Simulated scan of single mutants.
Amino acid sequence: MSTIRVVWGAASGPTAMASYDAALAEAGVENYNLVSVSSVIPAGAAVEAVGTAPDLGPAGERLTVVEARATTAEPGRVSAALAWSQSPDGGPGLFYETAGEMDREDVERRVREGLAAGQELRDWSFAEPRVALESRQADSGRHTTAVVLAVYGESKPIL
């Protein structure tokens, strides 16, 4: 089974899309077409928090991701978090994402609460949760984006 890498970044730019692209560059996934999926970790997958993605294949290919993303143009703090937990016996697991204009403590509390709620819906056993969090102070007059992504495996051709 492939590895799921958890990556993160935050950046500012003159537009919302420019700040998002720059945040993806910090995470190392700016050259891929991201395809979002819901939050189930397949049985047997290894999840590694790496910060910045290694080379995952040629530019323009498709990457499957679970993404937490927040963008603001207002002064304040923007945060994104991804929590996950897997079955200790190698079974499936779950990601939960949250993001917004909030401080680090609030986004971490919310992502942990969300993960716990998702775990209650499933008849699986879960190991201790892990959390990856990115937060950045937003300046007036610029857009700021924070992202945390779980990247499933390597890139695949889109055509």
Results as ranks from 00 to 15, higher is better:
residue 33 N to L: 04
residue 35 V to N: 10
residue 37 V to H: 12
residue 38 S to L: 13
residue 40 V to R: 05
residue 42 P to V: 08
residue 43 A to N: 06
residue 44 G to S: 11
residue 44 G to E: 14
residue 46 A to K: 15
residue 47 V to Y: 10
residue 47 V to Q: 04
residue 47 V to M: 07
residue 47 V to H: 06
residue 50 V to E: 05
residue 50 V to Y: 08
residue 51 G to W: 02
residue 51 G to P: 07
residue 51 G to T: 03
residue 55 D to W: 13
residue 56 L to F: 15
residue 56 L to D: 14
residue 57 G to V: 02
residue 59 A to S: 15
residue 61 E to R: 08
residue 61 E to S: 13
residue 61 E to I: 00
residue 63 L to K: 07
residue 63 L to V: 09
residue 63 L to I: 07
residue 63 L to F: 13
residue 64 T to M: 13
residue 65 V to P: 09
residue 65 V to W: 02
residue 65 V to A: 09
residue 65 V to H: 03
residue 67 E to A: 04
residue 68 A to F: 06
residue 71 T to A: 08
residue 73 A to C: 11
residue 74 E to R: 15
residue 74 E to S: 13
residue 75 P to K: 10
residue 76 G to I: 06
residue 77 R to K: 13
residue 78 V to W: 06
residue 80 A to T: 03
residue 84 W to H: 06
residue 85 S to W: 06
residue 86 Q to G: 08
residue 86 Q to S: 11
residue 86 Q to W: 02
residue 86 Q to V: 02
residue 87 S to H: 05
residue 88 P to M: 09
residue 89 D to G: 02
residue 89 D to A: 15
residue 91 G to L: 04
residue 92 P to S: 14
residue 93 G to W: 06
residue 94 L to F: 06
residue 95 F to I: 06
residue 95 F to V: 00
residue 97 E to N: 00
residue 98 T to F: 09
residue 98 T to K: 01
residue 98 T to A: 02
residue 99 A to Y: 03
residue 99 A to Q: 00
residue 101 E to G: 02
residue 102 M to H: 05
residue 103 D to R: 04
residue 104 R to Q: 12
residue 104 R to D: 12
residue 105 E to H: 05
residue 106 D to I: 07
residue 106 D to P: 05
residue 106 D to K: 00
residue 108 E to L: 05
residue 110 R to S: 01
residue 111 V to N: 00
residue 111 V to E: 03
residue 113 E to N: 15
residue 114 G to F: 06
residue 114 G to L: 10
residue 115 L to N: 10
residue 117 A to V: 08
residue 118 G to K: 07
residue 118 G to S: 08
residue 118 G to R: 00
residue 119 Q to Y: 10
residue 119 Q to A: 09
residue 119 Q to D: 11
residue 120 E to Q: 14
residue 123 D to F: 13
residue 124 W to Y: 15
residue 125 S to M: 03
residue 127 A to L: 07
residue 128 E to V: 00
residue 128 E to G: 11
residue 129 P to H: 04
residue 129 P to C: 04
residue 131 V to F: 01
residue 132 A to F: 02
residue 132 A to G: 07
residue 133 L to S: 04
residue 133 L to R: 05
residue 134 E to S: 08
residue 134 E to M: 10
residue 135 S to G: 12
residue 135 S to V: 03
residue 136 R to N: 08
residue 137 Q to P: 11
residue 137 Q to G: 12
residue 138 A to S: 15
residue 138 A to D: 13
residue 138 A to H: 06
residue 138 A to V: 06
residue 138 A to I: 07
residue 139 D to M: 11
residue 141 G to C: 03
residue 142 R to C: 05
residue 142 R to V: 00
residue 143 H to S: 00
residue 146 A to K: 01
residue 147 V to E: 07
residue 148 V to Q: 03
residue 148 V to L: 09
residue 149 L to I: 08
residue 149 L to S: 07
residue 150 A to F: 06
residue 150 A to G: 13
residue 150 A to I: 05
residue 150 A to T: 01
residue 150 A to W: 01
